[in-house]
Protein backbone atom coordinates (compact mmCIF):
# COMPACT_ATOMS: atom_id res chain seq x y z
CA UNK A 1 0.00 0.00 0.00
CA UNK A 2 0.99 3.55 -0.62
CA UNK A 3 1.08 6.57 1.71
CA UNK A 4 -0.82 9.73 0.91
CA UNK A 5 1.37 12.56 -0.31
CA UNK A 6 3.17 14.72 2.22
CA UNK A 7 5.86 17.36 2.35
CA UNK A 8 9.15 16.42 3.87
CA UNK A 9 11.97 18.19 5.57
CA UNK A 10 15.10 16.78 7.19
CA UNK A 11 16.62 19.45 9.42
CA UNK A 12 20.12 18.98 10.77
CA UNK A 13 19.72 20.65 14.17
CA UNK A 14 17.16 20.35 16.92
CA UNK A 15 16.44 24.04 16.71
CA UNK A 16 15.66 23.78 13.03
CA UNK A 17 13.52 20.74 13.66
CA UNK A 18 11.52 22.49 16.34
CA UNK A 19 11.03 25.50 14.13
CA UNK A 20 9.98 23.34 11.19
CA UNK A 21 7.53 21.45 13.35
CA UNK A 22 5.86 24.51 14.76
CA UNK A 23 5.69 26.20 11.39
CA UNK A 24 4.19 23.14 9.78
CA UNK A 25 1.16 23.19 12.06
CA UNK A 26 -0.79 20.46 13.71
CA UNK A 27 -1.10 18.15 10.71
CA UNK A 28 2.65 17.65 10.60
CA UNK A 29 4.32 14.65 12.15
CA UNK A 30 7.77 13.89 13.33
CA UNK A 31 9.42 10.80 11.90
CA UNK A 32 12.19 9.13 13.86
CA UNK A 33 13.08 5.62 12.73
CA UNK A 34 9.70 5.36 11.08
CA UNK A 35 9.23 1.70 11.85
CA UNK A 36 5.81 2.24 13.38
CA UNK A 37 4.91 5.33 11.41
CA UNK A 38 5.58 4.07 7.90
CA UNK A 39 3.26 1.07 8.10
CA UNK A 40 0.61 3.41 9.48
CA UNK A 41 1.12 5.80 6.60
CA UNK A 42 1.05 2.97 4.08
CA UNK A 43 -2.22 1.71 5.48
CA UNK A 44 -3.46 5.34 5.27
CA UNK A 45 -4.43 5.24 8.91
CA UNK A 46 -2.77 8.61 9.14
CA UNK A 47 -2.08 11.25 6.48
CA UNK A 48 0.18 13.99 7.84
CA UNK A 49 0.69 17.08 5.73
CA UNK A 50 4.40 17.13 6.43
CA UNK A 51 7.04 14.88 7.91
CA UNK A 52 9.87 16.36 9.95
CA UNK A 53 12.62 13.74 9.75
CA UNK A 54 14.95 13.70 12.74
CA UNK A 55 17.28 11.23 11.05
CA UNK A 56 19.86 13.80 10.04
CA UNK A 57 20.38 15.49 13.41
CA UNK A 58 23.68 14.19 14.80
CA UNK A 59 23.11 15.67 18.27
CA UNK A 60 20.12 13.35 18.78
CA UNK A 61 22.18 10.25 18.40
CA UNK A 62 24.46 8.39 20.74
CA UNK A 63 24.98 7.40 24.35
CA UNK A 64 27.03 9.38 26.85
CA UNK A 65 27.57 9.77 30.55
CA UNK A 66 26.75 12.91 32.44
CA UNK A 67 28.00 12.36 35.96
CA UNK A 68 25.64 9.89 37.60
CA UNK A 69 23.33 10.02 34.65
CA UNK A 70 23.27 8.02 31.44
CA UNK A 71 22.10 10.07 28.48
CA UNK A 72 20.74 8.40 25.38
CA UNK A 73 19.93 10.46 22.33
CA UNK A 74 16.38 10.00 21.16
CA UNK A 75 17.51 8.96 17.70
CA UNK A 76 19.82 6.24 18.95
CA UNK A 77 18.67 3.09 17.21
CA UNK A 78 17.65 -0.06 19.01
CA UNK A 79 20.62 -1.75 17.41
CA UNK A 80 22.96 0.84 18.89
CA UNK A 81 21.30 0.64 22.31
CA UNK A 82 21.63 -3.14 22.29
CA UNK A 83 25.33 -2.96 21.64
CA UNK A 84 26.29 0.06 23.68
CA UNK A 85 28.62 -0.88 26.56
CA UNK A 86 27.45 2.05 28.68
CA UNK A 87 23.84 0.92 28.40
CA UNK A 88 24.79 -2.65 29.26
CA UNK A 89 26.71 -1.44 32.28
CA UNK A 90 24.36 1.16 33.66
CA UNK A 91 20.93 0.30 32.28
CA UNK A 92 20.96 -3.40 31.63
CA UNK A 93 17.18 -3.60 31.80
CA UNK A 94 16.82 -1.26 28.86
CA UNK A 95 19.29 -3.33 26.85
CA UNK A 96 17.42 -6.55 27.68
CA UNK A 97 14.10 -5.09 26.60
CA UNK A 98 15.59 -3.62 23.46
CA UNK A 99 16.86 -7.07 22.48
CA UNK A 100 13.23 -8.19 22.19
CA UNK A 101 11.89 -5.31 20.09
CA UNK A 102 10.42 -6.44 16.76
CA UNK A 103 13.11 -7.99 14.56
CA UNK A 104 16.69 -7.22 13.49
CA UNK A 105 15.77 -5.09 10.48
CA UNK A 106 13.39 -2.98 12.52
CA UNK A 107 16.00 -2.62 15.25
CA UNK A 108 18.41 -1.20 12.70
CA UNK A 109 16.03 1.67 11.95
CA UNK A 110 13.81 2.04 14.98
CA UNK A 111 14.89 4.39 17.76
CA UNK A 112 14.49 4.61 21.50
CA UNK A 113 12.99 8.07 21.31
CA UNK A 114 10.63 7.07 18.55
CA UNK A 115 9.36 4.11 20.54
CA UNK A 116 8.77 6.18 23.65
CA UNK A 117 7.08 9.03 21.80
CA UNK A 118 4.90 6.55 19.92
CA UNK A 119 3.64 5.45 23.35
CA UNK A 120 2.18 2.13 22.27
CA UNK A 121 1.33 0.45 25.58
CA UNK A 122 2.42 -2.84 24.01
CA UNK A 123 5.78 -1.32 23.10
CA UNK A 124 8.64 -2.88 24.98
CA UNK A 125 10.66 0.15 26.01
CA UNK A 126 8.04 2.09 27.94
CA UNK A 127 7.99 -0.12 31.01
CA UNK A 128 11.79 -0.13 31.40
CA UNK A 129 11.86 3.65 30.99
CA UNK A 130 9.23 3.97 33.68
CA UNK A 131 10.77 1.42 36.00
CA UNK A 132 14.19 3.05 35.70
CA UNK A 133 12.86 6.54 36.46
CA UNK A 134 13.83 7.90 33.10
CA UNK A 135 13.62 11.57 32.48
CA UNK A 136 12.63 12.63 28.99
CA UNK A 137 14.09 15.84 27.74
CA UNK A 138 11.92 17.57 25.18
CA UNK A 139 12.51 20.69 23.11
CA UNK A 140 9.96 23.15 21.83
CA UNK A 141 9.78 26.76 20.78
CA UNK A 142 9.64 27.67 24.47
CA UNK A 143 12.87 25.86 25.17
CA UNK A 144 13.76 22.59 26.80
CA UNK A 145 12.05 20.85 29.65
CA UNK A 146 12.53 17.53 31.37
CA UNK A 147 9.52 15.30 31.86
CA UNK A 148 9.67 12.37 34.26
CA UNK A 149 8.52 9.12 32.67
CA UNK A 150 5.69 8.98 35.21
CA UNK A 151 4.25 12.09 33.57
CA UNK A 152 5.23 11.40 29.99
CA UNK A 153 2.86 8.56 29.13
CA UNK A 154 -0.71 9.79 29.41
CA UNK A 155 -2.91 7.36 27.46
CA UNK A 156 -2.96 4.91 24.53
CA UNK A 157 -0.52 6.44 22.05
CA UNK A 158 -0.68 9.71 23.96
CA UNK A 159 2.14 11.56 25.67
CA UNK A 160 2.58 14.88 27.40
CA UNK A 161 4.58 16.16 24.44
CA UNK A 162 3.04 19.51 23.55
CA UNK A 163 2.40 20.59 19.99
CA UNK A 164 5.68 21.54 18.44
CA UNK A 165 7.80 19.64 20.91
CA UNK A 166 10.36 17.00 20.07
CA UNK A 167 11.78 14.32 22.33
CA UNK A 168 15.52 14.84 22.37
CA UNK A 169 17.10 12.62 24.94
CA UNK A 170 16.43 10.05 27.60
CA UNK A 171 18.24 10.51 30.89
CA UNK A 172 18.56 7.62 33.29
CA UNK A 173 20.13 7.38 36.71
CA UNK A 174 22.85 4.75 36.55
CA UNK A 175 21.90 1.29 37.71
CA UNK A 176 25.43 0.05 37.81
CA UNK A 177 25.70 -3.45 39.24
CA UNK A 178 21.98 -4.17 39.00
CA UNK A 179 20.82 -7.33 37.40
CA UNK A 180 17.87 -7.27 35.06
CA UNK A 181 15.55 -9.22 32.84
CA UNK A 182 12.75 -8.45 30.43
CA UNK A 183 10.21 -11.27 30.29
CA UNK A 184 8.15 -10.96 27.14
CA UNK A 185 5.08 -13.00 26.37
CA UNK A 186 3.74 -13.04 22.84
CA UNK A 187 2.35 -15.56 20.40
CA UNK A 188 4.92 -15.39 17.63
CA UNK A 189 8.40 -13.95 17.72
CA UNK A 190 7.69 -10.70 15.94
CA UNK A 191 4.33 -10.00 17.57
CA UNK A 192 3.69 -7.32 20.12
CA UNK A 193 3.78 -8.25 23.77
CA UNK A 194 0.56 -9.61 25.21
CA UNK A 195 2.12 -8.83 28.56
CA UNK A 196 5.75 -8.28 29.45
CA UNK A 197 7.55 -7.56 32.67
CA UNK A 198 10.67 -5.49 33.10
CA UNK A 199 12.54 -6.25 36.28
CA UNK A 200 15.78 -4.89 37.71
CA UNK A 201 17.10 -5.80 41.12
CA UNK A 202 20.14 -5.12 43.23
CA UNK A 203 21.16 -7.73 45.70
CA UNK A 204 23.26 -7.12 48.78
CA UNK A 205 24.32 -10.00 50.99
CA UNK A 206 21.76 -12.36 49.45
CA UNK A 207 19.01 -9.89 50.18
CA UNK A 208 17.14 -7.85 47.61
CA UNK A 209 18.20 -4.32 48.40
CA UNK A 210 16.46 -2.53 45.58
CA UNK A 211 13.93 -3.55 42.96
CA UNK A 212 12.28 -1.98 39.94
CA UNK A 213 9.42 -3.64 38.11
CA UNK A 214 7.55 -2.26 35.13
CA UNK A 215 4.68 -3.83 33.22
CA UNK A 216 4.04 -3.70 29.48
CA UNK A 217 0.52 -3.69 28.06
CA UNK A 218 -1.25 -3.84 31.42
CA UNK A 219 -2.99 -0.50 31.01
CA UNK A 220 -3.25 2.41 28.60
CA UNK A 221 0.20 3.41 29.77
CA UNK A 222 3.10 1.41 31.16
CA UNK A 223 2.62 0.46 34.79
CA UNK A 224 5.12 0.53 37.62
CA UNK A 225 4.51 -2.43 39.92
CA UNK A 226 5.40 -0.58 43.09
CA UNK A 227 3.66 -3.07 45.35
CA UNK A 228 5.86 -5.82 43.97
CA UNK A 229 8.94 -3.67 44.43
CA UNK A 230 8.03 -2.94 48.05
CA UNK A 231 7.34 -6.59 48.71
CA UNK A 232 10.70 -7.60 47.28
CA UNK A 233 12.87 -5.13 49.10
CA UNK A 234 14.51 -6.62 52.13
CA UNK A 235 13.53 -10.15 51.20
CA UNK A 236 15.99 -12.99 50.65
CA UNK A 237 16.41 -13.86 46.98
CA UNK A 238 14.45 -17.09 47.28
CA UNK A 239 11.77 -18.51 44.98
CA UNK A 240 9.17 -18.32 47.74
CA UNK A 241 9.81 -14.66 48.44
CA UNK A 242 9.72 -13.80 44.76
CA UNK A 243 6.51 -15.71 44.11
CA UNK A 244 4.85 -14.05 47.02
CA UNK A 245 5.92 -10.59 45.97
CA UNK A 246 4.80 -11.27 42.42
CA UNK A 247 1.26 -11.81 43.65
CA UNK A 248 1.00 -8.03 43.84
CA UNK A 249 1.83 -7.57 40.16
CA UNK A 250 -1.71 -6.95 38.94
CA UNK A 251 -2.45 -4.28 41.52
CA UNK A 252 -3.27 -1.00 39.90
CA UNK A 253 -3.38 -2.41 36.39
CA UNK A 254 -6.20 -1.89 33.92
CA UNK A 255 -5.51 -4.15 30.97
CA UNK A 256 -7.66 -4.45 27.88
CA UNK A 257 -9.34 -7.48 26.35
CA UNK A 258 -8.52 -8.63 22.84
CA UNK A 259 -8.29 -11.89 20.91
CA UNK A 260 -5.06 -12.83 22.63
CA UNK A 261 -6.00 -12.16 26.22
CA UNK A 262 -8.73 -10.92 28.51
CA UNK A 263 -8.35 -8.92 31.70
CA UNK A 264 -8.19 -11.89 34.04
CA UNK A 265 -5.62 -13.71 31.94
CA UNK A 266 -3.47 -10.62 31.53
CA UNK A 267 -3.49 -10.05 35.26
CA UNK A 268 -2.64 -13.68 35.83
CA UNK A 269 0.19 -13.43 33.31
CA UNK A 270 1.48 -10.31 35.01
CA UNK A 271 1.89 -12.26 38.24
CA UNK A 272 3.48 -15.30 36.61
CA UNK A 273 5.78 -13.28 34.39
CA UNK A 274 6.81 -10.98 37.21
CA UNK A 275 7.92 -13.96 39.21
CA UNK A 276 9.85 -15.27 36.23
CA UNK A 277 11.36 -11.91 35.36
CA UNK A 278 12.66 -11.35 38.87
CA UNK A 279 13.95 -14.89 39.09
CA UNK A 280 15.72 -14.57 35.76
CA UNK A 281 17.15 -11.20 36.75
CA UNK A 282 18.55 -12.70 39.91
CA UNK A 283 20.23 -15.45 37.96
CA UNK A 284 22.03 -13.07 35.58
Amino acid sequence: MIPAAFDYVAPTTVDDAVRALSEAGEDAKVIAGGQSLLPVLRMRLAAPSKLIDLGRIPELRGVREDGDTLVIGAMTTHYEVQRDPLVREHALLLACATDTVADPQVRHRGTLGGSLAHADPAGDLLAPALALDAELVVSGMDGRRAVPATEFFTDFFETSLRPGEILCEIRLPKYTGWSAHYEKFNRVAQAWSIVAVAAAVRVENDTIAQARVGLTNMAATPVRATAVEQALIGQPATPEAITEAAQHAAEGTAPTTDGNADVEYRQHLARVLTSRAVTAALST
Partner: peptide
Protein backbone atom coordinates in the same frame (compact mmCIF):
# COMPACT_ATOMS: atom_id res chain seq x y z
CA UNK B 1 -12.69 -21.61 22.84
CA UNK B 2 -11.57 -18.59 24.82
CA UNK B 3 -10.91 -15.42 22.87
CA UNK B 4 -12.70 -16.85 19.88
CA UNK B 5 -14.98 -15.27 17.34
CA UNK B 6 -15.87 -11.67 17.54
CA UNK B 7 -12.79 -10.54 19.39
CA UNK B 8 -10.46 -7.75 18.51
CA UNK B 9 -7.20 -8.99 17.16
CA UNK B 10 -4.56 -8.57 19.80
CA UNK B 11 -1.53 -6.45 19.13
CA UNK B 12 -1.12 -5.27 15.60
CA UNK B 13 -1.23 -1.75 14.33
CA UNK B 14 -3.48 -0.40 16.99
CA UNK B 15 -1.01 2.31 16.81
CA UNK B 16 -2.32 5.24 14.96
CA UNK B 17 -1.41 8.07 17.23
CA UNK B 18 2.24 8.34 18.16
CA UNK B 19 4.26 11.27 17.23
CA UNK B 20 7.73 10.15 16.49
Amino acid sequence: DAGGLGGEAGGGLGSMGGTQ
